[in-house]
């Protein structure tokens, strides 16, 4: 039999539990990515002479595979006395990797702010901090929410990499089920379907959000 339904029902709760780990890893690393990315983009504008360094850093992070970065943080950090458990190391690596991508998204958002907004802020003597908080960020963020949303989905789809350092997320769980039972069809297909469903739903949500934002800006 190619597909065994009773086996499917048996492993479903186990996979559901693992899915929670995947989603947790996604959310934590995305918060890290979104925050760190914003910090990078803001620092780049606030302290222009850091621009080159940040560009190079972003390029370095984006030019090397996430999997190697995960290994690097998991295996190399302990050599410097910083021992992280697999989940933390993995989440940190994914967060930093996607921070590099997010910072470019924020940067595009900031670049789209008309120069007059900065000039008006200077003319009103606003501090740099107030200018970012009250004037620039509220205008720059809404248009880039869909782009950030796409990175959230992309990030989610990279969480199976955590299986390489044995984090018990979906992929790792499916592999273990497979090697224990010699049935790979159901667990791996179910994992695929789960990602597919989440991706399709997220894509629809992002499209709806985009429409909402377009309506708002037309106001």
């Amino acid at each position: 039999m190619i597909w065994d339904w009773s086996f499917t029902l048996e492993i479903l709760p186990v996979l559901a539990q693992a899915a929670v780990v995947s989603v947790e890893a996604t959310l934590i690393s995305f918060v890290l990515a979104a925050t760190l990315g914003l910090v990078l983009a803001v620092v780049r504008i606030a302290v222009p002479r850091t621009g080159w360094t940040i560009s190079v850093l972003v390029e370095l992070i984006r030019s090397t595979p996430l999997l190697i970065q995960i290994f690097f943080i998991y295996f190399v950090f302990p050599k410097f006395g910083l021992v992280l458990d697999a989940f933390t190391a993995g989440v940190l690596a994914i967060g930093i990797h996607y921070a590099a991508y997010c910072s470019e998204v924020y940067r595009a958002g900031f670049d789209n702010i008309h120069r007059g907004q900065w000039e008006a802020s200077i003319a009103l003597n606003l501090s740099a901090w107030t200018t970012f908080r009250d004037i620039i960020i509220p205008q720059a963020i809404p248009p880039i929410v869909p782009a950030l949303g796409n990175y959230l989905v992309a990030l989610f789809k990279e969480t199976p990499l955590l299986s390489a350092i044995a984090v018990m997320e979906l992929m790792q769980t499916a592999k273990i089920i497979g090697s224990d039972t010699f049935r790979y069809t159901e667990p791996i297909t179910l994992v695929g379907l789960f990602f597919l469903a989440m991706s399709l739903v997220s894509a629809a949500l992002i499209r709806a959000l985009e429409r909402l934002l377009n309506r708002r800006t037309v106001r």
Partner: peptide
């Protein structure tokens, strides 16, 4: 000093 601009530069939000 205060300034008024050609393109207004009001904060749209």
């Amino acid at each position: 000093i205060g300034m008024v601009f050609q393109s207004f530069n009001l904060f749209p939000h």
